[in-house]
Design a protein around this nucleic acid. Sequence first.
RNA 1: GGCCUAGUGGCGAAGUGGUAACGCAGCUGUCUGCAAAACAGCGAUGCGCCGGUUCAAUUCCGGCCUAGGCCU
Length: 305
Amino acid sequence: MKQKIIVIVGPTASGKSDCAITVAKQVNGEVISADSRQVYRGMDIGTGKITKKEMVDIPHHLLDVASPKRQFTVVQYQKLASKAIQDILKREKVPILCGGTGLYIDAVLEGWEFPKTPIDKTLRKNLEKKTTEELFDELKKHDPEFSKTIDHNNRRRLIRALEIITTTNEPITPLKKHPLPYTIEYIGLFPGWEVLQEKIKKRLKERLNQGMIEEVQHLHEKEKLSWKRLESFGLEYRYISRYLRSRHSDPEMIEGEESLGNRRSFAHAQDDNFITMKNDLEKAIIHYAKRQMTWFKRNKRIKWF
RNA sequence: GGCCUAGUGGCGAAGUGGUAACGCAGCUGUCUGCAAAACAGCGAUGCGCCGGUUCAAUUCCGGCCUAGGCCU
């Protein structure tokens, strides 16, 4: 009989982590996180990372495996996750892949063979200076076929494509896939938009009270993560870091803060910046959930609950 | 009762005598090493209502309605 892997997907706040614990207990499994942000150490509240206590002795893999200072990518995830799967199967337990990053999950289970061309920071820096149009023209010159299918305005993809082409000197070939030889059971969690939005709002409020702002502040001040880096993480890290910056440039807020002399007090502040941040973040999370669903919808093997 | 100002897609908001920018929300979608990222597409046959002028009005004129302001 083929060995089995269970996959739990769904948009943010749909209850994946709890579900994974329940399933793990039932089938004698171990959880592999499939979340592009939970891999980073020190990013806990903002990513909704499960706590040791919540794990109730179920082993969890691929949490805290990277420094937030360094860039982590799908390819790295793919390697680590594949290794974890092998390891768990060898011990005759069931791997439970659980998370909201569709790309990571598909890359692992379908064995996507990404182009080997590594990231070339210098090259990227140079390409970054060009206009989007110039990037596209250059791509068209080197690989007219591929240029037909790429988003003309997507600088990030344009740059990566040029990175591959200029180092290999060959056109980009279609992606090869090598699906894992196991029985894969896909479970999708989606409570409906109404409920999900409520859950998102409620969870955001809780996290803000749990010290999420302090977490971001700590990452910037103590871990020395630049605002730009925090911005790139998106969602909570993006919007809270913007909020922290706006507070910094608002003289009244700084005064108020000093007189209070209480580090935690501002987390509950009801100043305009705070409210705006919360509303914007709320919207962004909902948008994100929609994008996640767009990805998952393509996979017809997912059984939705 | 009189005068003034405003009335544009769900909301906010441009605009012109020649057939409706844009932002937000919404919806659909893309995805070959940053994926919580990056990116794409789609919504008013219609500009409060009724007439008039004009080849042509959302844009000009008259009246009406509604909202806000002011006056007696």
